[in-house]
Computed example of a mutant assay.
Amino acid sequence: MNRIINGLVIIPAMVLLSSCAVIGKSPEPTQTVSSATVVAPRTLTEARVIPVHNAALSFSVPGIVDEVLVTEGQSVKEGDVIARLKGIDRAKAAITQAEVLKLTAQKNLDDFRDKTNVSKAEAELVLAKAQIELKNARDARKSLDYQQVSGAALDGLRATYYMALSDFKEAEDDYEPYKDRGEKDIERAEYLAKLSNARLAKDKALYNLNKALEMPDPEKIAKADARLALAEAALNDAQSTYDKVKDGPDASQLSILEAAVTNADAQLKSAQSSLNDLELIAPFSGTVISNDLKIGEAVSPANTVMLGDVSAWQVETTDLVELDIVNIHPGDKAVVTFDAIPSLKISGVVNRIKQMGVASKGDTTYTVTIDLDESDPRLLWNMKAFVAFEK
């Protein structure tokens, strides 16, 4: 184990025995004891340098490396392709085919819905027209089932005729004394004109009465019956057509078309997933730290490419035991030194503490991550460091 000193104390020799520090104890404030200065206790542990963002990338499927686009030390942006396996062309062709299939399926579904909406509107219009025609046909046929005028109107026509007949007879009687006079006789002419007008009025009243008393023409009745039958048939047909479309698209046909779209979408996602399996893509911007992939080489998910954002560093402890970890909390300050760079000292803050310990050489160790307040171009991934936790 590489833990150096827990509770390091600096005091003069004369008080050495009276100022021993307790291992794992939380730091105490600096105080004066017998004129000696005591430094607050702290925990010192070994650690390693890691990027704040880092990942071990690997292909999710085995295959043969076809392209290596980024080598060790090169920078990448999020979404950049680092390497590809053979089979990209097939995968892209499968995506294109799946996209065409999805577009076709979606168009079929949209066309079906649009056609259904148009059919419903047309069916509503045809039904409305059929209802109007049936009403008109019924009214026309009903009008032929009785005399053309009502009883009151017929009584009025009769009364008009009888009055005209009475006026005519009265005019005849008035004319009778003058009928043998000469044609140029003024009085005869006056009574003759009166008689002529009375005759015209009588004849017209009789014509109107007789017309009102007439029954419908059998031919007209036959035509009206035929019109009514056609109107009823047209209405039934229009109603049947409307009933089929009034509730929207046919459920079974709609279900089939929707299933086709779902299936096409699944095929497209599967094709895209297959393409993704053949490409090693950077999940964030950073630098490729290690990349042993070679063109033509067979690889499996076990082959990894290390990616890290070296613009910001952290350190992870490697040997903190359970007696030490209880005195460390997120937010605690720390000072980090580096074995390979003795002159470098960087302050930091505890970011997180891994809750599960790991058995190591008879102890249980816990990992603590410390964010560094600054960076240094000399720092490298996995460089050895020492962390002093202070309150």
Rank of each mutant, 00 (worst) to 15 (best):
I50M: 12
T43A: 09
L8M: 11
S35Y: 04
I64W: 10
I64C: 13
I50N: 14
A21D: 02
L16D: 02
V33P: 00
L44F: 04
A36V: 02
L8S: 04
V38S: 02
V49C: 07
V61F: 13
L17R: 14
V33N: 00
C20L: 15
I50R: 15
L17D: 14
P51T: 11
L16P: 01
P51V: 07
L57Y: 08
P41K: 02
E28T: 06
A40I: 01
T43K: 00
A40V: 01
G24E: 07
V22N: 15
H53L: 07
T37E: 07
P51L: 09
F59Y: 12
L57R: 03
S60H: 15
S19N: 14
P62Q: 07
P27Y: 05
L8N: 00
L57F: 10
V15E: 06
P62T: 09
I64T: 15
T37R: 10
S18D: 07
S58Q: 10
V39W: 03
P41A: 04
A40E: 01
V49P: 02
S18C: 08
T30E: 13
N54Q: 10
P12T: 14
T43L: 05
C20F: 11
R48N: 10
T32Y: 04
A47C: 11
H53N: 08
L16G: 03
N54R: 02
S60G: 13
K25E: 14
K25D: 12
V39T: 13
S26A: 13
E46R: 13
L44W: 00
H53D: 06
A47Y: 03
V49A: 06
V15S: 02
A21W: 07
V33Q: 01
A47L: 05
V49Q: 04
T32I: 09
A47I: 05
T45F: 12
P41Q: 05
V38N: 01
P41M: 00
I11H: 13
A36F: 00
V38C: 03
H53E: 11
T37F: 06
S19F: 11
L44V: 12
G24R: 04
F59T: 01
S19Y: 07
I23W: 14
S26V: 01
F59L: 11
H53V: 00
P27E: 10
L16S: 03
I23V: 15
S60V: 14
A40N: 02
V22P: 12
R42I: 09
S35I: 06
V15R: 04
T45E: 03
L17W: 10
N54T: 04
A47K: 06
A56R: 03
I23Y: 15
R48V: 11
A21Y: 08
V49H: 08
P62W: 09
